[in-house]
Design a protein around this nucleic acid. Sequence first.
DNA 1: CTGAAAGCGCTTACAG
DNA 2: CTGAAAGCGCTTACAG
Lengths: 355, 355
Amino acid sequence: MPTAKPTDDASIDLKGSATPARRTRGGPKGLRITDVAAQAGVSPITVSRVFNSPESVAPETLERVRQVVQKLGYVPNRLAGGLSSARSRLIAAIVPTIAHSLFSETIQVFSETMSRAGYEVLLALSGYSDTNEESLLDTVLSRRPEGVLLTGVAHTASLRERLRNVGIPVVETWDMTESPIDMLVGFSHYQIGEAVAERFLARGAKRPALISASDVRALARRAGFRDRLAKAGMTEVAELIVAPPSSLATGKAALPQLLASSPDVDAVFCGSDLLAIGALGAARKMGLDVPARLAICGFGDLDFAAETTPQLTTVRVDGTRIGVSAARALLDRLNGAHERAFVDVGFSMVERESA
Amino acid sequence: MPTAKPTDDASIDLKGSATPARRTRGGPKGLRITDVAAQAGVSPITVSRVFNSPESVAPETLERVRQVVQKLGYVPNRLAGGLSSARSRLIAAIVPTIAHSLFSETIQVFSETMSRAGYEVLLALSGYSDTNEESLLDTVLSRRPEGVLLTGVAHTASLRERLRNVGIPVVETWDMTESPIDMLVGFSHYQIGEAVAERFLARGAKRPALISASDVRALARRAGFRDRLAKAGMTEVAELIVAPPSSLATGKAALPQLLASSPDVDAVFCGSDLLAIGALGAARKMGLDVPARLAICGFGDLDFAAETTPQLTTVRVDGTRIGVSAARALLDRLNGAHERAFVDVGFSMVERESA
DNA sequence: CTGAAAGCGCTTACAG
DNA sequence: CTGAAAGCGCTTACAG
């Protein structure tokens, strides 16, 4: 609980501001470009140029203005700059969650890349609901971002249309579709489901099953998984669908439940590595040999999994590459390119068991 | 690699904008508050009130304006609103990294809490360098955030001073100090180091050692660890300092190296769970019984660790609580409270071995 | 290489 | 409950 702490509350603010603040509202807060201009003996326009196109300013002027900026500690107001120039230098990233998630890698490198290019990232967490995403969009658009990163390709028609009308570059990520809103950097969850089913079949699994979260992308993996199994004549696939976000505990609870109703299951595709690790823990407790008696496949290839749970098979996707490619795609367009990136980063199966 | 994709590039933008756009620059982009006002037959001020103080607008007027807003798809421009009101509704969060990191939890809940209160989070990733953090501050302050979340308490004097002068609430997190810039929600890394040392001593360790990243907070844990051991007469503590961010691979490589020069080490305090898990993997390969022959203690209590590596001891810190408390502290102040939160969320040792 | 004027799209007091 | 006027702090063409 917060504890009161006595400290002086005075905040000095415009040491050096010669011109008296004569605004009707707000206190004497912050330096303005005119303060710098006055001190440096130039016009505000020149100060603006020092920040936005230094190459167009005479070296001595540049130096002099910079000195003043430094001395005064002036930081330009980008709310004003953005309004005036119609360039916010802001990129919005809408992601379900960054906690315990592969998305955090994507956002990390996306943000790094963007910031190197002079943009900042407004982070918007949508959770796993569509409606939430759409109301978030308003909030986000109110900042007039110059580009938007979206997670997934399942968006309401209205969101898609509005985003198109705004006319800024958009990248959808972490999924695949033939008709993206604008650009896309992702991979096919359906194909992953198929690949896992195939692997299970190749191992001779007789009763493959599924434990999955109910989010759109997990359900796409499920569809691929089931369709591929159906092709092999397995139309009845035991499954347990859990609410996102998936966790260790969920996986741990799910496996016994699944096996209770379908005792002969010999391979389980888990919607995420966390679910898979949870399931593995449960399997151990039940004395089931993994993968001999029960094969378990995860999704995500969390980096610790290789070290700690070599019994698991998993699907690796490159969240880092998605972040970098998405950033590049956006930046290219912001720099005037006309191509629309459409990138399938693919995936790979990671099998560590020597069994 | 991006692939060109043909799509029509036309972006319709102001369906419904009756007034002709007569600005000197920029295209006919976006709806303005005046467009809504005109359609609704009210003044722009009233439209503004519909968004910012709906309770002060007559119910019928409110309804009518909202209809128009809905119909036109109007989204207020917060760059303009922020400039005019001097309220950006933006909170900056400066964090070293969100990938593979406990900070991602903190940011997740921080962002959720803030957004529920009507604020958005500008994410700034500083990496692990001080200079970087200071130049980031300029970038961040240029957006005129109403509050700032900082990671750690080790900031340059100039950053501290500037932040104080800005006069907005600041929370430092994930560390402890007697003299925060403003508010603080964290815990003592030094105390954690002491606690781990104590645990090792209680277990009868004769040769405790350390594998740690070289970031400030890890070094504080190291100091506590060494000081406590020194009190027990152990002044020579084998250690290996690695560059952040720490990873599994680093831990895996570090342990053999440490043992090569100090073969009789029987307990290792690793700077993070990832390092610890890496070290555990190496120990297994070397045929060392953990924890009987070699105790390993991590830091962070990554949620999967309990399941996958019960041999490890670790220190649990509550990143979620930090995020929530930091958000509350900021919000309280933004709502006019005068107290400055000073919260020690503490930590706990998690020992799973039954040995 | 530098500047005066106008404007970006809102909101703030102040009236009524 | 509603509005006319002024201003927030920048940048954009346009000149020179």
